[in-house]
Simulated scan of single mutants.
Amino acid sequence: MTTAAAAGENLKKMPLPPAPFISSVMQIEPQWIDYNGHLNMAYYNVMMDRAIDEMWLQLGIGPAYMKARHCSTFTAEAHVRYLREIHLGDPVQIAVYLLGNDEKRLHTFEELRHATEGWLSATSENMTLHMDMKARKVAPFPPDIRARIEQVTASHAAVPRPVGIGRKVAMPQK
């Protein structure tokens, strides 16, 4: 059996991510705190990216997928909203919603929350591209992966949509 075929067999046995996907609890690292005494803006993205990586593992498009099928994902666009400060010692957890997809793209929304108190600290809305890593070009998902993506998108569509989807950066109207 080829590596890709074995990966496909293992994929069939993997449970689908829940709706929404909830990451593991993460801790703020001391070097991420800036001179304002709170989490630097760049590290919100680091934590949300780690949560996406956790979900991608369950979706079947993590590092093993890259190795077996020579495909991966790249973020093409992100819109982060910083709503409440996170500080050193605050545990965080991220909910990931798979909002939509087509043959080559995934539309996700993440909510970063304080893991024990539940308040919302930040959100990130993203467009992700599926990449053929040999050609370094955007490419369609394989049919088995696309089927999993469709199932997860449908299950995520059944839960209430979080506030903030579709926001844009603009000055308030007077």
Rank of each mutant, 00 (worst) to 15 (best):
K13I: 03
P15R: 07
P18E: 14
I22D: 05
S23T: 11
V25W: 04
P30A: 14
P30W: 10
Q31T: 12
Q31E: 13
W32L: 08
W32D: 12
I33C: 05
D34Y: 03
Y35V: 13
N36D: 10
N36L: 14
G37V: 00
H38D: 09
H38A: 07
Y44P: 00
N45H: 15
M47C: 06
M47N: 01
M47W: 02
D49G: 13
A51T: 09
I52H: 09
I52L: 14
D53L: 08
D53R: 06
D53W: 02
L57S: 02
Q58H: 12
G60K: 06
G62Y: 03
A64T: 12
M66W: 08
M66R: 11
A68N: 15
R69D: 11
C71F: 05
F74V: 11
A76W: 00
A76H: 01
A78T: 12
V80N: 14
V80G: 00
Y82H: 14
Y82P: 02
L83H: 11
R84E: 14
H87N: 13
L88Q: 15
G89D: 09
G89S: 09
G89L: 08
G89R: 08
Q93D: 03
L98N: 08
L98M: 12
L99Y: 08
L99C: 10
G100R: 07
N101V: 00
N101T: 03
N101P: 00
E103M: 00
R105C: 00
L106H: 08
H107K: 12
F109H: 15
E110I: 09
A115H: 03
E117R: 15
G118W: 02
G118C: 03
W119N: 11
E125K: 11
E125T: 09
N126A: 14
T128F: 02
L129F: 02
M131K: 07
M131L: 13
D132F: 05
M133C: 14
R136N: 10
R136V: 04
V138Q: 13
P140Y: 04
